[in-house]
Amino acid sequence: MRILVVEDEHKTADYLCKGLGESGYSVEVARDGFDAQHLINESEFDLVILDVMLPGLNGWQLLELIRRRSQVPVLFLTAKDAVEDRVKGLELGADDYLVKPFSFVELLARVRTLLRRSPPREREHFRVADLEMDVLRRRVTRKGERIALTNKEFALLELLLDRESEVLSRTYIASRVWQMNFDSDTNVVEVAVRRLRAKVDDPFTQKLIHTERGMGYVLEDRS
């Protein structure tokens, strides 16, 4: 999977390059609009991460150029969180956006979603270690024992299972489980995860839900 990062800020570009590289993507970096245009014309990419404020050709112009020749997914980064900016980006054909400052976990989650070309299949059954979920019958069991969950706890567990081994940020969890698209500064997600753990993990020796401090939560079998 080849990703083009168009970013003029050196530190940002470097860490995006390293981070995405470690996550298994091959990354090219363009420092300005003209470089980016050149690279896009020369080779094929699976995803473009585009900073809007660029020297030379700005992000919007570049986006228009990209859209003229390919349907490659574009994720744009903006420092302005004015609504007009986001609307403009999406109207010009971008697929998603992130407002700076964003967390790397958040970026990774968006990148994965965009690269998963086909819409995700609704899964009906999950199994991680001895944890099982039957989505249709709304049944969760561990070691064959039935665990009773509230609606939101069920939704949270389903999300964690669906994105198994992916670190999910609090903001992402809040937006998927509660449809809360604002960045809440309360510890709602922490509390919800703690309550879910009390039911799913605490009575058992093997823990499945892990906290990645400062980043979010992940469900995986680490044994």
Binding site: T150, K152, W178, Q179, M180, T186, V188, A192, R195
Partner: peptide
């Protein structure tokens, strides 16, 4: 919707 969101915190 908000009550559902804050449910866990409240029950704590």
């Amino acid at each position: 919707q908000l009550c559902e969101y804050f449910e866990g915190m409240a029950e704590d």
